[in-house]
Write a protein that binds this DNA or RNA. Structure first.
Lengths: 205, 205
DNA sequence: GACGATATCTACATAGATGTAAGTTACACC
DNA sequence: GGTGTAACTTACATCTATGTAGATATCGTC
């Protein structure tokens, strides 16, 4: 196949012109992958640009600055975490939500979407204001658990916030250092979830 | 006060010549403080050098490279974490170790010693081999709890490793994202410790 | 007090990340 | 099909972190 193959009528355009929304979406997907696979330091303009096939200057054009890209990534991932928590709330309110299902929903939110690593990055870098959208989702989760599970009593709200704090701490910890820790203790991959699911009823009933 | 004040008999030496051990110790103390206060990206040769009053070239002379400094910091902090866990073990084996005392010991190791932020940094950067010295300390902790607390039974070892996994996950999570999470839920600062201390007996008895 | 080992510094070189300015091109719209 | 907007690129400038080479100063030791 020669370089100037006459069969190739239409050359692909040298440049691909994306809509601003599409480029932002592609860049954030790439940046999230880099964060999860290679850590926060891998999120650079050149790294993301090479990954999606644009120059670093173009990323600055769309995000304003490198910090703008990082902020957009934090916002995007935090929104996904909040959505995942909201989905857990919806599931809890609709059908037969067992404690283990709730635990799985929260653990998945921190683990699969990379929210655990994101939260660790935010905490280490000190940009705590980016966690703010999670607050409403957490409150919704508290309310949903109160409706669904909690026994009546004076301490109900306190017990449920304890339960949410407990689940969130464990889900976050499990997402970030669960694998090496389970390896040290020779435990199976879902042992964290099992433990939390087993302890949860002591808060709720 | 003139520059050449005759009253100032002995000028302080322009350079302070430290022993290699002393410089390494000072550098690692500074690097740990920078990690805890400003995050992993603050640990630079210039940052640490300015902090302790030496040039970055001198730090390279003593640590070999920037990566050498970071590795030394990880080793130092992991050793401190292992020592703290060993201290908790010793306390557990000697006197009246209540569950809350054990919880406080582990939580303090992760929180005050900076081990939580260290572990998050290691996990995000992928240098998991640096956590290896923790393995022995964790095993010691399991053994000590088995001796001290655990009721007799077939499942004893499994229950205790569950307890250790549980404490470690919560202590790590509490050290890294405990403050913002407690703020969202309007809980007091030691609520994480309270919860863990209250749940611990269900593993041990 | 002289000397030697080496801790320490200065000066320079390099690489990567970020940012700016100006030119180029794709694509919607008329 | 022409035209304008703006997505996109190239080229350049800057800043920071890291690393190297050689000069210099400090301190223990004789």
């Amino acid at each position: 196949m020669s370089i100037q193959d006459p069969a190739r009528i239409e050359q692909p355009p040298k440049r691909r012109r994306r809509s601003p929304e599409e480029l932002r979406r592609e860049a954030l997907v790439s940046a999230r992958r880099l964060l999860i696979e290679s850590g926060p330091n891998a999120i650079t303009l050149k790294g993301v640009g090479d990954d999606i096939g644009v120059t670093h200057a173009n990323l600055i054009h769309h995000f304003g600055s490198a910090a703008g890209l990082q902020s957009a990534l934090m916002e995007s991932m935090v929104r996904d975490l909040a959505d995942a928590l909201d989905a857990a709330v919806a599931q809890l309110r609709s059908d037969t939500g067992a404690p283990r299902a709730l635990v799985d929903a929260v653990f998945d939110a921190f683990d699969q979407g990379g929210a655990g690593r994101l939260a660790a990055w935010i905490a280490l870098s000190g940009d705590l204001q980016h966690l703010e959208p999670v607050r409403a989702a957490v409150h919704d989760l508290v309310d949903a658990i109160v409706e669904k599970f909690a026994a009546e009593g004076e301490q109900t709200h306190g017990r449920v916030t304890s339960a949410v704090l407990f689940i969130a701490l464990c889900a976050f910890g499990d997402a970030v250092i669960g694998p090496p820790l389970r390896d040290m203790l020779d435990r199976e991959p879902d042992s964290g979830r099992k433990i939390v699911a087993r302890l949860l009823p002591s808060f709720l009933f």
